[in-house]
Design a protein around this nucleic acid. Structure first.
Lengths: 226, 226
DNA sequence: CATCATTTGTGACTAAAGTAGTAGTTTTCT
DNA sequence: AGAAAACTACTACTTTAGTCACAAATGATG
């Protein structure tokens, strides 16, 4: 238990809270651990708890009936999951699916005590406010991408982002890419082949190496506004 | 000036604040009035102020370089505009375009004093938190719609929402609909004609009357291949 | 190391959405 | 009223995205 309190206190969101309060939270919180690929929750399930990522990456995504996925975001250390429903609803339901795409540790905190804290602690509110603002921004970006850009362009952008990510922590199956880009595997395969034929990249299974980054940037950056 | 203080105090977001503080805000705030169709701001412009809608409706939308629009949301009485950039950025720029789609009154408040208030007043933080959470939810919904549903289905859904809106406060040109649905005018015209031929609705210019609401509901709710 | 599950490769096909061009309406504004 | 502006109609065409079906490669594991 002491262990858990410590883990909590290391999260930016809680770092300024007095120990006493943390201890209290700890009593109600629980610590959870997942393997890569594990499902954490599914859209529609009822749950009035809040999750905080300790380490690892969570993929939050929506699924269509046809089995197509669309990623809403990747959540890393210190980020909150399920805050919106937990704050707004009487009987909160997950609004999307979440899956561990790396080894993962989470803390689960019932919303009631957390809301209590929020009401008393403005600093905490501000931290959460900041997080939501960031998330809103990324959603806005995502929406514009989805609305205006072709799959081809979104894929190019995704590849560049991946290449830039210093710690490539998760494997890129075509299915994984498809859900990030918002399309189906077949289409990703088709464009990857095209890019390869054009000499923009080289690949060996899930290892993709960009050869002509700027060519891809052109495809990706076809501008929205600026 | 006293007038403005009063207007401020009537907004849910400020209603609990002591008069003295409101007066102080008022000094820095300004009151603005727009006609239907007026542009309030454009993406990319620098502005470190926050807007609060007093009455009327603001359309917030992104534009693509091809001149296509995608609505991010409609903002009504009491809602905040430009909060995210104003909170996150050192030199905040509007992240989207905003236009008055009805007669409109706004209050504009420089972000600095507002942030000051936020830091001191937890109740205010919580109200804003609540607003952001709502907005995040609507964006999530929007994203799923855009990602998974056909234009046809999105249009049907839009028409139903409009029909349900008790006070149809803004005119529905095909362009207006197109931007809400995330496509171009032509396509809207095509589907409207189809719906009319099928007997689902009747229209006379911008007046649209649903005749078979449930038929449209099917198209809106059920899936693409239909 | 044999087998089963996951992932990838392809080509042919279908459907949805966007583009273009031209013409015809209303509405609005002197 | 008459011209300009905004909005709508319609048809034909092009591109993009998604679907289907099946084969091959990889790799995990008992």
């Amino acid at each position: 238990m002491k262990n858990l309190t410590e883990k909590l206190s290391k999260q930016a969101i809680f770092s300024r809270l007095p120990k006493a309060i943390l201890e209290e939270l700890t009593h109600k919180a629980s610590w959870m651990c997942y393997q890569k690929g594990d499902t954490i929750f599914l859209e529609g399930e009822i749950c009035d708890s809040l999750y905080i990522v300790l380490n690892g990456i969570v993929k939050l995504y929506k699924s269509s009936y046809e089995g197509r996925d669309q990623v809403l975001g990747y959540f890393e250390d210190g980020m909150l999951l399920n805050f919106v429903p937990a704050m707004l609803d009487y009987e909160p339901k997950f609004e999307a699916n979440a899956k561990a795409i790396t080894q993962l540790e989470l803390i689960k905190i019932p919303m009631q005590p957390f809301l209590g804290l929020l009401k008393e602690n403005n600093e905490l509110s501000l931290v959460v406010l900041h997080m939501l603002a960031l998330r809103l921004r990324s959603m806005t970006q995502l929406l514009a991408d989805l609305g205006f850009r072709s799959v081809r362009s979104r894929l190019a952008r995704f590849l560049i982002r991946q290449a830039d990510d210093p710690n490539k922590r998760f494997s890129l199956t075509q299915d994984e890419i498809a859900s990030a880009v918002g399309t189906v595997r077949d289409v990703i395969g088709r464009y990857l082949r095209e890019f390869e034929e054009l000499g923009y990249l080289k690949r060996d299974r899930q290892k993709i190496v960009l050869l002509q980054r700027n060519a891809l940037e052109n495809i990706a950056e076809i501008k929205i506004t600026e």
